[in-house]
């Protein structure tokens, strides 16, 4: 056969590097694509789950590319299952690598959790026992994925509903040791801290004060749902379905006072509101950041504005 007369090979746009500024961003939802492209709101950056962009083509990639042309982008994976005892899924690693190469995200993060077993993918972030065995396994996986993707990643402190009898290490110690051994960065989810503190009965302030903030490259804020546990005590669910709780805002101010200005994301994944509601939450995060640190990434933004004019 001769070569096809029309190869029609889709050219993939090459994006310029765009670091994530120490401003507020929001999780990008499909229902907001058009509003964002039409209004170009003054927001620092967007974040997506790479798993939602693992089709070969189609509208999700077209919208994401158009948004990536105008804003810095962060990839926040949910499917890597870094805490799995089993080997990481090579095919999934390849897909992540391809997306990182295609979109050149300013940040790339995942969760301290596991989600896959022999039967398949469970689509939830499952908790880990904090032991030396788990730590060694997680470190091995983090080394593998950072080598493979060729860049430093951030890992997020979890929200959990149960603990394991086998756990013999504190969560903050576990996370600090993970960062020390692998050189990975940390994504500090302040809502998760409050969920953990409530569900397992410890002080959220102590957790924040002990957290190794020198490794923190990003902060997450989200709303949680309130239920009760088997003893009738409060059990918080990391639902991402409403505004950030008042107490979590206070904890955020405490965290950001320690960490300094850090890119901060509003996650809102269920009961997603109209764009202005989400935007208002992001602007509130910038106000808190400004009040706590006296600045919101002034250098990067002024430069970008000067270039844009």
């Amino acid at each position: 056969m001769t070569a096809t007369a029309q190869t029609a090979k889709q050219s993939t746009p090459a994006f310029a590097e765009a670091p994530i500024p120490a401003r507020a961003g929001v999780g990008l939802k499909a229902q907001h694509y058009r509003t964002i492209l039409e209004d170009e709101p003054d927001i620092g950056w967007f974040e997506v789950h790479p798993e939602n962009y693992m089709g070969a083509g189609g509208p999700p990639h077209r919208y994401l590319s158009e948004i990536r042309e105008r804003y810095p982008l962060s990839l926040h994976g949910v499917g890597l299952s870094i805490g799995d005892d089993r080997p990481l899924d090579e095919a999934h690693l390849q897909r992540l690598k391809m997306l990182v190469e295609r979109y050149k995200p300013g940040l790339f993060s995942e969760h301290l959790a596991w989600s896959t077993h022999d039967e398949g993918y469970l689509n939830d972030l499952l908790p880990l026992p904090y032991t030396e065995e788990t730590l060694a396994r997680v470190c091995e996986h983090v080394d593998q994925v950072q080598d493979m993707v060729g860049r430093r990643m951030l890992f997020e402190n979890p929200s959990t509903y149960v603990r394991f009898a086998e756990t013999d290490m504190g969560e903050v110690d576990f996370i600090a040791e993970l960062a020390r051994r692998t050189g990975c960065g940390l994504l500090f989810d302040v809502n998760n801290v409050y969920v953990q503190a409530t569900n397992h009965g410890f002080s959220a302030e102590d957790y924040i004060d002990a957290f190794p903030v020198e490794h923190v490259g990003e902060i997450h804020l989200a709303g949680h749902a309130r239920e009760t546990d088997d003893l009738g005590k409060p059990l918080l669910i990391d639902a991402h379905d409403r505004e950030v709780d008042r107490i979590v805002w206070d904890l955020y101010a405490r965290a950001i006072s320690r960490a300094g200005p850090v890119p901060t994301l509003i996650e809102w994944d269920a009961n997603v509101p109209e764009w202005p509601v989400l935007f208002t939450e992001a602007m509130r995060a910038e106000e808190v950041m400004r009040a706590a640190c006296g600045r919101v990434a002034p250098a990067v933004r002024e430069d970008e504005r000067a270039l844009a004019v």
Binding site: Y161, F164, D230, L231, L235
Partner: peptide, 16 residues
């Protein structure tokens, strides 16, 4: 080996 707040059977917690 799953524990909740105290010695209770963590049915609701695991149910999440």
């Amino acid at each position: 080996d799953i524990v909740g707040r105290g010695g209770e059977a963590p049915e609701r917690r695991f149910g999440i």
